[in-house]
Amino acid sequence: MARASSPQRRAVVTLAAWTAGFVIFFPILWTVLTSFKTEAEAIASPPSFLFFNWTVENYGEVMERSNYFRHFWNSVVISVGSTLLGLAIAIPAAWSMAFAPAKHTKDVLMWMLSTKMLPPVGVLIPIYLIFRDTGLLDTRIGLVIVMTLINLPIIVWMLYTYFKEIPGEILEASRMDGASLRAEILYVLTPMAVPGIASTLLLNVILAWNEAFWTLNLTAAKAAPLTAFIASYSSPEGLFYAKLSAASTMAIAPILILGWFSQKQLVRGLTFGAVK
């Protein structure tokens, strides 16, 4: 930064930026704080910000009452399962497109992207009926399938943009040395692409974890992930703010932490490489 910035200007910028950050983050902070209050304190007027009797009993109650861990586990299985399955399908496809492009590769990529633009509600009824008739309704397998399919275009695209940056000569050299196609992908390409694959994995776990159209419509009690579990709090009975907050905090904490690690990849992944 060659531009001189006066201390006053810097102070104003610092103050403004911190205020903006605090305001935007506040709803999350407030939720976390409320989760440590008693139900009575959670709705007390005026509300206390920090000076209340901190308690963790809400967490205990949420876990005890509502089978929290089952829903948590459903979320893990659905988001991680669909991402791994998606990667297994997408890595070979992205390899083909990046290192053995054919005439129509670009069209195929664009077409894959276009499937992402299909509004989910347009195919809700057929998927619902197919699931009902095949017994996939309210099963984790059913949701893994749907999540894999809706995120597959993003996975292929992200991998493609990462693979594109790996020099093809290295792969060619391994081929000259007699590596088979399988060895080439498994032992040469994959290790080099680990950072790209890792960020793809991370972003897709986040997207699948937070997906709330299919999870709400295709699950009931059994396979409901956290998105649907939290939605069941929308018809409250009695005092429940503190418990709602505890459940919410537990639902968003893992992904918030993962998300903070993936900021950079997020931009790239969600803009399909258009902004880096």
């Binding site: 983050f25 999350i28 709330a212 939290i230 968003i252 992904i255 918030l256 998300g259 903070w260």
Partner: peptide, 9 residues
């Protein structure tokens, strides 16, 4: 942060 909060929450 808000981007990572699930819509239902």
């Amino acid at each position: 942060a808000p981007f990572f909060v699930m819509p239902t929450v």
